[in-house]
């Protein structure tokens, strides 16, 4: 895929954010908070870093993308629809009966490589993909988004040790570290302590960045590409803001899984249009 500039990617992330809140508003259901915090990484992967073919979603040599925190699928759907994996108007069918855009992603949706939604599981599947690609001597890579709350699941660490054992330098995870989960902050619910130190102890190369700063996301992905043969899996600890870009959603746990009403929706679009919190 043709590389894009940071400015171009920022504009795309802005467009995807608007699509996310529109989809969730229209569905009156969905998860805006984490969709917005992961927007920069998802945008940079799909629109610049990954080799994918919207016209051939099952292309064997494609890079894989596993949204382990599956509830934030609106941001992935927005990316896939914008790229043309399916007609963009399908985005208006989120969570509706018969739609390929299920409440949590499944493989009926073109571009989804594995169903997710039950936390802790997608990462292990990403590890399996990365092992299989290496067995076949393919240069394709695997990208996966994990939630910081999700890292409370034990299976995450089972998968992490496997990534180390098999030297999966073709695997990049982005830990969307927004410090919020349903019942409150991660520090209150179950302290993660230093996630970067934990993944480092599990054998990962660590890239600790502001995950909502597109320039830093792109820089980390550039560095990772240059370390593709280091024999180590990669972990970006992306410090992010849940609800990023929408004034009243930022850092408010209750916007984890709530849809905006009409007034809130209009405000959200205004906030995103005016680059609220990106100035």
């Amino acid at each position: 895929m043709k590389k894009k500039t940071v400015e171009e990617l920022k504009a795309i992330a802005k467009d995807l954010r608007k699509k996310v809140v529109t989809m969730i508003y229209e569905a009156q259901s969905g998860h805006p908070g984490g969709s917005l915090s992961a927007a920069e990484f998802v945008t940079a992967c799909y629109f610049s870093e990954m080799n994918v073919d919207p016209k051939n979603p099952k292309w064997e040599d494609r890079d894989r993308f596993v949204l382990s925190k599956g509830h934030v699928c609106p941001i992935q759907y927005a990316a896939l629809g914008t790229l043309g994996f399916f007609p963009e108007e399908v985005l208006h069918t989120l969570r509706k009966e018969g739609s390929p855009l299920q409440g949590h992603p499944n493989m009926h949706c073109p571009g989804i490589d594995i169903p997710t939604g039950s936390l802790g599981q997608g990462f292990a599947c990403a590890v399996g993909m990365a092992i299989a690609l290496k067995l076949d001597k393919k240069s394709a890579r695997v990208f996966s988004v994990l939630g910081d709350g999700e890292c409370q699941e034990g299976e995450i660490w089972e998968a992490a040790q496997t990534a180390n054992k098999y030297g999966l330098d073709n695997l990049t995870i982005f830990v969307d570290t927004n410090n919020l989960q349903i019942d409150g902050t991660t520090d209150e619910v179950m302290p993660n302590l230093d996630l970067g130190a934990k993944f480092k102890a599990f054998g990962f190369e660590i890239y600790e960045i502001d995950g909502n700063d597109m320039a830093q996301v792109v820089h980390a992905l550039d560095e990772i590409r240059m370390h593709s043969h280091s024999g180590k899996p990669k972990c970006i600890i992306g410090h992010t803001t849940k609800g990023k870009g929408v004034s009243y959603m930022e850092n408010v746990a209750s916007w984890h899984g709530t849809a905006p009403n009409k007034e809130e929706y209009e405000q959200a679009i205004k906030d995103i249009d005016s680059d609220y919190s990106f100035k």
């Binding site: 596993v66 594995i114 997608g122 990462f123 292990a124 599947c125 399996g128 993909m129 092992i131 299989a132």
Partner: peptide, 11 residues
């Protein structure tokens, strides 16, 4: 999970 991921790659 690892097996599932492998199966998506034709294994």
């Amino acid at each position: 999970g690892v097996a599932a991921g492998m199966a998506t790659c034709g294994k």
